[in-house]
């Protein structure tokens, strides 16, 4: 358990000393969201309708951007080998790395989303649902993404390949995440969507670290 905390601490410390990488993904999120009104037009009713989808798609893309970093730097400087050879079970260390990834790339999106939601004239209660959905959904993105990051480690054109592998797997998260906000706005209630997101999160939390561990061992062999 202390090893889990240690790896979270280590990755957060590194992220703190390399703030620019975290901030880049965050500004990417803001810019992508702001591009949609420019492309579609400023009509408030339409923007309000598509806001949940836009915010979610931007969150997916922004997560993709930071996924490359998850194992690549550790791979390049040889510390990944040390993690694999550590007496601590690799699954635990991988879970810690995923947690740290969410704290540096998922959580900021959750905190920023309601501010951006205001630009689209979402009501406070809809903003609340948006935050709730992102809170359940962004860890899911980190978990699923870690499998892709491990599989494409050290592979030619890894970044583009990673999005090709991972984005289709993100579709359920997108559907239920954006759907929760839409359902709330249309008065259907978001609880169904949110419980499904939570179920997916539980499933991924169980299986993803395991699959990532297997993929990492293959990549290092």
């Amino acid at each position: 358990m202390s090893a889990l905390l240690a790896i979270v601490r280590r990755d957060l410390l590194i992220a703190m000393r390399r703030k620019s990488e975290v901030l880049t993904a965050l500004f990417f999120f803001i810019i992508v969201v702001s591009l949609f009104p420019l492309g579609i037009g400023p009509e408030p009713a339409l923007l309000k309708k598509i806001a949940p989808g836009i915010l979610w798609v931007a969150a997916l893309l922004s997560t993709m951007l930071s996924l490359n970093r998850l194992f690549a730097t550790d791979h390049a400087d040889g510390t990944l080998e040390q993690l694999v050879l550590s007496p601590t079970p690799l699954g635990l260390l991988v879970a810690g790395k995923i947690m740290a990834h969410w704290l540096t790339s998922g959580l900021p999106l959750v905190l920023l989303a309601p501010v951006l939601g205001l630009q689209f004239d979402l009501e406070p209660s809809a903003l609340g649902v948006l935050v709730g959905a992102l809170l359940l959904g962004t860890p899911l993105l980190s978990l699923i993404g870690s499998i892709g990051a491990a599989l494409t480690l050290g592979v030619r054109g890894g970044g583009v390949l990673l999005s090709l592998l991972v984005l289709p797997l993100y579709i359920p998260a997108l559907i239920f995440g954006a759907g929760a906000v839409e359902a709330h706005i249309s008065g259907l209630g978001a609880s169904g969507h949110l419980s499904l997101l939570a179920a997916l999160l539980a499933l991924a939390a169980f299986f993803a670290p395991w699959a990532t561990t297997a993929a990492l061992r293959i990549s290092l062999e």
Binding site: T152, V155, R156, G158, L161, L164
Partner: peptide, 14 residues
């Protein structure tokens, strides 16, 4: 179809 393309692309890249 995307999943198939991802599988083929991953195998081709390694």
């Amino acid at each position: 179809f995307f999943l198939y393309i991802g599988f083929i692309a991953l195998q081709a890249a390694i």
